[in-house]
Structures are given as C-alpha cells and as structure tokens.
Design a protein around this nucleic acid. Structure first.
Lengths: 345, 345
DNA sequence: GAGAGGCTCGAAAACGTTTTCGTGTTGAAA
DNA sequence: TTTCAACACGAAAACGTTTTCGAGCCTCTC
C-alpha cells in the first residue's frame, strides 16, 4: 500500500525542484537532456501518473461529461450510453452517469451534483415527470452557468441548446405505411400520454400515415398509456374484441404485450394481425415472431451527442450556434409485419 | 453566462476574508451571528455551491466510485448499475462508469484512467478476455496503490478483495432439479466456455443436479459456446435431431435461441420440451412462452457491492478483513418449464 | 575584459477549498 | 489603570499540478 507518487516526492528524491520535474516530464526544452532522462526514468520506474483532480483544478477542465438518463434497464438507453462512452473515451473524456428514474427531483439533484465542478458539460434525456411538470429551471440554471448541455431523444423545445433527436414522426409514419402496404386497414396504436415528447410525435406520424392513405382515424383504436406498470392489463383490455388487422406500438414493451394479448385470444401474429414496433432492441430480435421495428440507432445518437458536447466544450463551434441533429431511423422488417411466413434460413 | 461563484468572490464582495466566508458557511462558532447571516444570505442569493474538484483535492477524497463493466446492453449489467447507483447516491457518492466491451486492453486503460485520482475505489466485473488471459496485473496494481476494489459477478479468485457473487452453481442445480421434478430426463445444457467463471460454475451445478438424481451425463448434450455472435446457428445445429425433453441455458440469449431452434423444428416449448434459463431479464418476462429463470438479483448485487466498497473507503471495516458476499438466486417459474399450461389470468 | 545571450533551473502564483494559528479588539475583573 | 480572557476575524499553508518569470552561470564576441 504505497501512497500515490507526486511531483513533490520525485523532486525531493532526485534533489531538484518541483517545476523541473514537471517540465522534464512534459519534455520542455528548458530542461537539459541529462536531468530530463533521469527524471523520466525515475517516473517510469515508479509508475508516476499525474493526479487528475489537481489537473482539473488547475485547468478548470475536468475532461468528464455528465450523462443523466431517465432509466437504464432499457436497451435504448443502454445503447445511448455505449455510444456516448465510446466517443467520450476516444476523445479523452470520462463519463459520469446519473439516473433520474424518471423523477423530477432526482433529475434536479443529479444536475446540481454534476454542475458543481465535477463535469465540463451535460448530456441529458429528460425524465418523464419533468416533461409533465414542464419545469425546466434546473436546465436554465446550468446553461446560465455556461455549462454546455446537449439533450438527447427526450428533448424540450423551449430550452436553447444542442439536441439530438430522431425523426420520430417520420419513423412512425413509415412503419404504419409499411403496415398499410402489407394490407392493413384497421390499425391500432399503442402509445404514451402526450406529454412524453417522443410518444406524441410518434402518434402524429401514425395519424399522418392514415391520412395519407385516406384511412379513417378511429379514436377507439388509439390507446395512450400512462402507467407502464399496468400496461399489460390495459393493453389486453384494449385489444379485447377489437376488429383490427394491424398494431403499431411505440416501444417494444407495448408491442410484446399486444402480441401476448392477441395470442391469449387465439389471434395469431402475423397471420391474423400484423405488428410493427418502435425501438429496436434485443427483445424485438429474439421474440417469436421476431418484431418488425423502427430502429432508433441509440448508439449513434449517443455518439452524436457526445461529439456535439465535446465540440462545444472545446469551443470548436461558435457560440450560440446551436444545432439539432436528426438521426435517421430505419425500418427493420422482420416476421411480425409480414403475412407470408419467411422461408426458413 | 456567469462564471461560477467562489469563496474569493464572495469575500471580495462582502469585504471579508476567504476564511471567514468558509467558516461562516460551515456555521463555525468563530464567526459572529451578524457576519454569518450576511454571508449565508449572500451565498444563498447567488446560489453558491462549493467546487467539488477543489474539495476533492483538499480532502484527497473524490466521493466518486468507478464502475467498470464488460457490457451494458444486457439487462443484468444494467440492473447492477442501477443498484450501484442507488446506494452510491444515497451515501453521497457519484458513479463513474466505464465499459470494457469485454476487451482486456480497454479494461486496463479504464482502470488506469480511474486510478489517477478520479476515484476513491472500484467496482469491477472483469472482461471475458481478461479471464481468458488470466492477466490481472492491473488489478494488483490498483490494490497495491491502496485503492479499494470490489469485484462483482465475474470475479477472479486469485485476487484478494471484497467480492459479490451469486450461488451460480446452486442456482443452476436448483433450476435443473426443477426440470427433473417436472419430468425431464434428458436435459441439454447450453453454456459458455469454461474460462468464463460463471459459465463454469453453472455447468457444475447442472452436472451436480444430474448426479443427484442418478441421471447419466451425456457429453453430447453439453454445448459450450465461445462466440456469442454466431450462437443462434450453433445452437440450432446442436438442437437438431437431439432427443431431449429439457434445456437449461445459462443466459436468456441462449434460452431464446434454443426455443427458436426447437420451434423451427416443430417442437413446442413447453409442451414437448421444457426450458429453464439463467438471468431474469425483460426478455424472459415478455417472451412467449414466458421463460422460467434463475433470478440473479442484479440490483441487489450492485447495491451490496457499493455498500462494501463505500464501507471500505470510509474505513468502516477493518483492513484485510475481506469478505465475499453471496447473493441468493431465486427460481422464477413461468411457462417454459411447466407442461400443463397455466390457466389464463 | 566586458557585455550579450543562451542554457538550466528554481521560486512563486494560481486553481478553490479547509483549517490551524495568530492577532487585534473588546469587555470585565483585579 | 492594568491584565487577561473571550471574541471575531485574517494570514497562510496545504492538496498536486502548470506556467511565468527571474536568476545564475557559462560561452562567445568584440
């Protein structure tokens, strides 16, 4: 248990000054070859590593970015994390992760914790509760402190900052269009309550697709779920005795619940009803039937967000020149949305 | 864009010294009520928050713990994170997350990054590649520097430190016993190569269950998968024309692949073959048929690991008094392991 | 031989805190 | 009036760096 080596200790050991050691290790031309080599050899031998905290204090840069997410046990956010992490590491940054668990209070606390100097900037996907309350003072706070903020996926339009979103509405429209092209005429949607920004947008896309194809919008075929915990029962009740030939769900959980509900009623997917889902995760890939989905490219979104944030931290981009990057979704068509069974691989 | 408020600025503004401000804010009795109130009011008004980095440097404590995981898009590790995060926050710590992507090199780099002062201690689940190489010098390194290390789930026995594991072998034995109790006699296992510690232990549990029941061990019924990416094909080939009535899989991915392979051969789960899996995640819950699993209680493991680590950081526990906490698994029996269909809810 | 200039290196400040110690002022006791 | 304690506050060091500036010394050039 040796305490960590510092410049001061090296200096004392080698009988030079701290500044000399520092310069030698950074290959300053001020230092003679002799002493430089001596110092570098010593440092290497005892595995000297500069103390990051001291550097952060000195430079007033932590080379750390904060990532605040509503949840993590969710493939989408997990992929966002890995995207952020990858480019952050590539550019020499650490990632400090906090979870809000969709709670407004925790989100505020997390932001305050991270804003007290631990972090050079934020990537945030706002909590559901925050979107409901529409209270964004904590975001304005950190921005007014000069901390760069990039919002991902669940963004709030009123806040001026860089954003990374997907074309939720178009993605949904394409998915529903695909269902229509595959023969569906009575398509139900299972979505979230409107204050969840992405849920609202996806609902819009659904409506647009119907209108584009002169299909009637039936309010009875629209289910907006508030409480994730009881979604299975709610969906089962909703599906019950509905005359439908297609279902569009805004996430994998809703989609699998729908398939299950249909299955329990003796209705087969995809033979009787086609299903399209949002959020391409492991669940969709492994489900039987495998689910057709709108891929959100979470890793790409996370990567883009990290790029934007670090660019701004390093002032590589002009002030006030905020951009909203739109990551394109793509349709992944699998078994659940196609009547004919695919031939076995 | 106001730069963050510091003690020095408050001091200048109120025409007192920095030390007075510091003491006033910490309610030191040295300071008179008058000035204390004045300073506190000012600080509150302008929302002063002490700079965390400066505190870290001063106290040589960062109140941050590092969490190094092999992957994240995986329900188990995601739940571990949320467990760690929860108790860390509760005890006033931040969590710095790094992903090794199962790469030895990245693991080493991550540990070095986090060990240079950013962190008071580590929680680690070692990368697959590290277990294969059996090179643990980076772990010994951080330990010898006096940094507490807690290993989770994928632990290495040679390293002396606190550990949090589950009863992998017993969990597997119980699951296989359940299959046997439910009538299975020819049970296949789909597991990982042996150098993955948990895979090996689960395989042991499987073997023990068979022996306990005087069932013959058939090497043809044991599949050890090296390459996750091609596991689906490998499993399909393995299942092909095997005479089995039960499958035990060491993770959800293998389990769903097995069900799929059986399904493609016209074999029904659970009517013809029963399936039991390890790692209780969303996939298991939502799959049709829902999968019976051995619940690993990831959140609990993460929480326990964080408790152990923080206790050690805060010296609440005697030196050298390392413990290995075993979190009990529990069987979650769902549809896939029971012949009779459950009555509909 | 004197000034100029180039090499090396060290002292000190700075980043934002906390804490120890010292100091000046006040009030009361002697 | 002197002395002493209590009180209220400030100076300075420390945490581990980097960087600016200055200083000492040697060598070269007139």
């Amino acid at each position: 248990m040796k305490p960590k080596l510092t410049l001061k200790q090296i200096a004392r050991e080698l009988d030079v000054s701290v500044s000399t050691v520092s310069k030698a290790l950074r290959d300053s031309p001020e230092i003679s070859d002799d002493t430089r080599q001596k110092i570098q050899a010593f440092a290497k031998l005892y595995n000297y590593k500069p103390n990051n905290i001291a550097l952060s204090l000195k430079n007033r840069k932590t080379r750390t970015i904060g990532l605040v997410l509503p949840e993590i046990v969710h493939d989408f956010f997990a992929t966002v994390i890995s995207g952020v992490e990858e480019v952050a590491n590539k550019r020499g940054y650490n990632v400090l992760i906090c979870l809000s668990n969709n709670s407004f209070d925790r989100e505020v606390i997390n932001m305050e914790m991270l804003a007290n100097g631990s972090t050079d900037g934020f990537i945030l996907s706002v909590a559901k509760e925050t979107q409901q309350k529409e209270d964004y003072h904590h975001l304005e706070e950190v921005i007014s402190q000069g901390m760069p903020l990039v919002m991902v996926d669940r963004v709030v339009n009123d806040i001026i900052c860089d954003k990374v979103i997907i074309d939720d509405s178009d993605g949904a429209r394409n998915a529903v269009q695909q269902l229509i092209d595959n023969g569906c005429r009575k398509i139900a949607i299972i979505t979230t309550v409107d204050y969840v920004s992405v849920g609202k947008l996806r609902t819009e896309g659904y409506l647009r697709a119907l209108r584009n194809n002169d299909l009637e919008v039936d309010q009875d075929l629209i289910l907006k779920i508030e409480d994730m915990d009881n979604s299975q029962e709610e969906i089962a009740g909703f599906i019950q005795d509905k005359e439908i030939d297609g279902v569009f769900a805004v996430n994998e959980q809703f989609a699998t619940s729908a398939v299950k509900a249909l299955f329990d009623q003796g209705i087969s997917v995809p033979n009787d009803v086609l299903v399209f889902s949002f959020s391409d995760g492991e669940l969709s890939r492994r489900f039987i039937p495998s689910l057709s989905t709108v891929n959100q490219h979470g890793a790409e979104m996370g990567a883009k967000a990290a790029e934007l944030l670090i660019d701004r931290i390093e002032k590589a981009v002009a002030d006030e020149n905020f951009q909203t990057a739109v990551v394109k979704t793509s349709l992944v068509e699998r078994e659940s949305s196609q009547k004919r069974k695919k031939s076995l691989v």
